[in-house]
Structure formats: C-alpha cells, structure tokens
Amino acid sequence: MNAIEVDDLTVRYGDVVALDGASLHVGAGRVCGLIGMNGSGKSTLFKSIIGLVRPASGSIRVAGVDPATARRRAVIGYVPQSEEVDWQFPISVRDVVMTGRYAAMGTMRRPRAADHDAVDEALARVELTDLADRQIGRLSGGQRKRAFVARGIAQGATVLLLDEPFAGVDKRSEATIVRLLRELADDGATVLISTHDLSSLPTLADEAALLMRRVLHHGPPAEVLAPERLATAFGVDLAVQP
C-alpha cells in the first residue's frame, strides 16, 4: 500500500506557481528523500500533504485517506524547517513532545499516565531524556530535530514529514538522526524527508525524488543522484561537489 499518494498536484501562491503537476507515490514503511533547490516547492509539497495550502488541482491521499481525515486521525508527524520555529519560545523539550499527544487528549489536554509514559518513551528513543526539561532553544541543532521527531513518535504518527532536518546540523548528529529514521521506518513508519545533503542520501533513503515544481525523477537514490539528472534539477553541475 502507498502511504503517500500525490497526483498531478498544482499549487499557486497568487502568481507564483510553486507546484505544477507534481506526482509522488511513497510506499508504506519506506524512506523517501526529496531533493530540489530552494524554491523548488519542497515545503509547499509538505504543506499540501498536511492540507495547510489548498491545491489548485490534483489529489492527495495520506495513509489511504484524504488529508482532512488524516488530520483527524493525527496520522502525520511534521518536523518543521528550522526557520519556522520560534526557538526562544518558553517551552521545554518535554512539553514540545507532549503536544504530540494532544489529539488523543480531552478538551483541556490534561496529560494522563499513558501520555506521560508515551512522552518518556519517545524521549528515551531519541536519547533526550536527560535534556527533557531544557527550554527547546537550549539544544543543539541535531537535538532540536530529535525533539520534534520524538513528538511524532509520541503522537504515534505513521507518516513522518521532515523539512530539511539536516540544515545547520553537524555530521555526527545527522548520522544519529539517519539511524533513528531508519529504525522508525523498519517499524513501519513512512518517511518523506527533504534534504540538501546528497552524500547521506543512499544510507538514509530507500528512494529519492527530484523536485522542480514537479517530480522530475523518482527512483533508487543512486539513480536519481546521477550527475545529468541533478544538473537538470539544479540548473548547475552540482555533481562535482561531495
């Protein structure tokens, strides 16, 4: 079964065409790396899958249902781009992870024992237990991303969307996150992750998609990373870079 099915998706912001007939199917339990230069529509694709932007045309199914139903079932775990987060916000790591449980809670979102357990478990899984009471901004770049992944774990999300999680993250933290995402995928989660780091793509992803307003190519990482393909997507000869 496909966990993500995007068909012929077109999204406009006023005059700007951000996505123009993009199609992408990702099977359940797979990790798909989304690559494309700035402005190629990666974030827009994520926001369309969540349902935050209204497409001009096209169809989207997440975990077999439309985005609205997927939201009601809290299927999607979203790890936002760093620039989208207010890192000064007075909230602790633990409380960020707890917001993953909100969908399952009552009106007041008062946590019960099961919620605390789920949060503790998620924090342990991403190895942030010791830093749980820190303010979210007082973490390193990699730890911040793990906190948001932990939120998705606590949520029980089966589809994880990560928007450029490796930007500003050192190589060692990146390797930790890659390992974590692989584990989650082995447990059945579907991961769609946008990245500029082409070198880690083969270890991270089962498949890769090259985006430039539409999906130019989609297949095994090695195939998608072929120099002539990248040249078309990036408009330059990127392949000489590591």
Partner: peptide, 19 residues
C-alpha cells in the same frame, strides 16, 4: 484552552496537522 492556545502560538502547523 491554555494548552491549545500555547500550541497555536508555538507551532500552528502541528496543531493543524493533528486536527
């Protein structure tokens, strides 16, 4: 509704994504 408002202030996209 304080926890909802706080989540809305911190990460409205996540709030929306979980319904």
């Amino acid at each position: 509704k304080r926890r909802d408002f706080t989540l809305y202030a911190f990460d409205p996209t996540h709030a929306f994504a979980i319904g």
